[in-house]
C-alpha cells in the first residue's frame, strides 16, 4: 500500500473513533425516559401520542401561535379572542390577529383538541371584511354555530357559541 493510503487510513481511524463518540452522543440526545411533569393542557396531549418526541416538536409550534393554555387572556378587551368554554381545553384563549385559525386534532392545527369526536382538521376561523367567518373543513361530526350546522362559511359574531365535538368556543372581545 502507498504511503498516502496508509496516512489516510491512520486519520480515518481517528475519524471513526470520533464518529462513534458523536453517534453515541446523538443516541443519548434522543434517549428520553422516566417521567415528566407538564402543565395540564399539554399533559393530555402528551399522553395521547405514544411518541414523546413528536410531542416535543408539536409543543413549541403551539406556543408560537400565542395559544395560552389554562389562563385567561390579560390582553386589551378591544382585541377579539376565542375562548374555550367547554371541553378538555376549557379556559384556553386564543387571541385573534389577522391570521386564520385552524382547529382540529392534528398537531399542525393552531388549536389542538384532544377529542375523539373531532376531525384532524375540523374547522377554520378566518377574518374577512372586518369580521370573522367560520368554515367547516369537511369534518365527520360537523361544526355547529348556535345549534345551526355550518356548511358554507358563516359569519362568527361576538357572543356566538361554536360547538365541535365536546368542545365549545366563544368569540369574545
Amino acid at each position: 500500500m502507498s504511503e498516502l493510503s496508509i496516512t489516510l487510513l491512520r486519520f480515518g481511524f481517528l475519524i471513526l473513533l470520533w464518529a462513534l463518540v458523536l453517534a453515541a452522543i446523538g443516541v443519548l440526545r434522543a434517549d428520553l425516559y422516566g417521567t415528566r411533569v407538564t402543565s395540564r393542557g399539554r399533559g393530555r396531549a402528551a399522553r395521547r401520542r405514544d411518541d414523546a418526541r413528536a410531542d416535543k416538536v408539536a409543543a413549541p409550534a403551539r406556543s408560537n401561535t400565542g395559544v395560552r393554555t389554562g389562563s385567561i387572556s390579560t390582553r386589551d378587551d378591544a382585541v377579539a379572542h376565542l375562548a374555550v368554554t367547554a371541553g378538555t381545553l376549557k379556559g384556553t384563549t386564543i387571541p385573534l390577529g389577522s391570521a386564520p385559525i385552524l382547529i382540529g386534532r392534528s398537531p399542525t392545527c393552531t388549536l389542538v383538541i384532544d377529542d375523539d369526536y373531532c376531525s384532524a382538521r375540523h374547522c377554520r376561523v378566518f377574518p374577512e371584511a372586518g369580521g370573522w367567518l367560520v368554515e367547516d373543513l369537511g369534518s365527520t361530526n360537523g361544526t355547529f354555530l348556535d345549534n345551526q350546522r355550518v356548511d358554507d362559511p358563516m359569519p362568527f359574531k361576538r357572543g356566538d357559541k361554536l360547538r365541535l365535538g365536546s368542545t365549545t368556543l366563544e368569540l369574545r372581545s
Partner: peptide, 27 residues
C-alpha cells in the same frame, strides 16, 4: 395543575446495532 406522564422509550436496539457496526469497524 400539572400532570405527571411517563415517557415511552424506544428500546434502542436498532441504535445499538448501528453503533456496534461502527465499533466493529474500529476494532
Amino acid at each position: 395543575m400539572a400532570t405527571v406522564s411517563e415517557l415511552q422509550v424506544r428500546t434502542g436496539r436498532r441504535a445499538e446495532i448501528a453503533l456496534l457496526g461502527v465499533s466493529w469497524a474500529i476494532i
